[in-house]
Design a protein around this nucleic acid. Structure first.
Lengths: 138, 138
DNA sequence: TATTGTTATACTCTATAACTATA
DNA sequence: TATAGTTATAGAGTATAACAATA
């Protein structure tokens, strides 16, 4: 057992942060009767209208999987299937007003859930952390 | 639409980092024929021997769920069920040699997968990022 | 012929409720 | 009586393969 390298420790910290963040998201989604994937679908559709296939590609899922996800979310009144104008084979998916309201509410809840963690750092460090993450992800 | 606050941007960055990290983990697990949960079970058991119920509590799952997870991982030869000495009702779960090898291999793969992202930051910034994350998570 | 989406099927993950064995 | 774990059941998420409609 050798001492973990600096990079190993960074990967560990990223992993811990990821599980913490995903845990919060999963809990919030569950409170709203949604899975994490359903939550992601709502988030993606907040500023886009996508076909079933594009939505699937966006999430790295099969089209057949997306058919079911959209069917269940539609049954809940969160989104709607709309015929695509250019291609009669395609189906566009859009948020309903209720779906948009749920997405907005969950986004706010997510921020509220993460804030206590962020607040363990002073303002200047929060900004520094945000900048470092953005640079790493860009 | 008002400009997002500094804290909103931090939460967004944490979310993006989380999806990136979990995505890598999920892909690596899938390559090994495992789910993310199975991967977590292996990781937890690397330095612990836990009863079914404790393992479930650790992951925030029901005991009945853990019964199935352990059964499937055992069938793959990754872990073993051992009678608990103190309590005849309880079942300890331990890694097999193969399970330990898989866990070790996946941990290395995870580091390799994240390294290209980390390397977008110079050494000094990587260390700073790691420190900030650790302080936020502690 | 190729693409879009659906359906049928199968497996995993998950929870709830009822059960067995042990404490 | 309470607890540890299992089983039965049900629903969601996921993939693969076969299919219909359209391009």
């Amino acid at each position: 057992m050798s001492r973990p390298s600096e990079d190993d420790r960074l990967v560990d910290a990223l992993g811990h942060a990821a599980f913490l963040t995903m845990g919060s998201l999963t809990d919030l989604a569950a409170d709203a009767g949604l899975s994490l994937t359903q939550l992601r679908v709502l988030a993606i559709l907040r500023d886009r209208r996508l076909r079933i296939g594009d939505l699937a590609a966006y999430l790295g899922l099969e089209r057949s999987t997306m058919t079911g996800l959209v069917a269940r979310a539609s049954a809940k009144g969160l989104l709607a299937r709309v015929a695509n104008e250019q291609d009669a084979r395609a189906v566009d998916v859009v948020l309903t007003d209720e779906g948009r309201a749920v997405a907005t509410r969950l986004e706010a809840a997510m921020r509220a859930a993460m804030l206590p963690h962020a607040e363990r750092l002073p303002q200047a460090d929060r900004r520094r952390l945000r900048e470092l993450l953005e640079r790493m992800l860009r």
